[in-house]
Amino acid sequence: MAKSIVQEFTKGLWQEIPPFRLVLGLCPTLGVTTSVENGLGMGLATTFVLAGSNILISLLRNIIPAKVRIACFIIIIATFVIIVEHLMQAYTYQLFQTLGVFIPLIVVNCIVLGRAEAFASKNGILPSTADGLGIGVGYTLSLGALGAVREILGNGTLTIWGDLGFNLASVFPSFQPFTFMVQAPGAFIGLGLMLCAINAIGD
């Protein structure tokens, strides 16, 4: 029954990778993944909230009364979200501006509340930390992957924090960006195709 800490961590990377296996947290997945950078930034912010709230909730799991647990979870999650919002505003202002309303919306991301309710409130602090980090890293990687697919097809570029820049036009000079992919319907089709691929690969 009791899985090792490593297992708790790695399950978030493949078996329960959030947008693809759990199909949760789709709102930011579709909304912000117009570039790798946005996807990774959003994922990291969510990871911070997930890990923080998982740790705190598993610490307090015996104190929080069952009847008001959702209210307590939301207070904890909201606190972390506001912290992350302030920190991003202070240190990564441009990313904060492009992500915009999706940062405060982490509060209602079902992954965070889902992990709190389904995992952290029933498990000890170490497994909960591993679970939160694992799911968070998995989420970050999936957003980054979807962002990469959309950015490279739809814009022909791949930019991570301005340092690692890649331009498809330098390899194929006649490349014309497939603009559809960075528009909203492109997000749905991109996500659908990635879900399809992940399911085809299987466990």
Partner: peptide, 22 residues
């Protein structure tokens, strides 16, 4: 009573924390 106490404490700790972060 426990519910009220826990919620109150949580909220005030959270409020204090956020104020300092702010």
């Amino acid at each position: 009573i426990k519910m009220v106490v826990v919620l109150t404490i949580l909220s005030s700790v959270s409020g204090g924390l956020l104020a300092s972060v702010h």
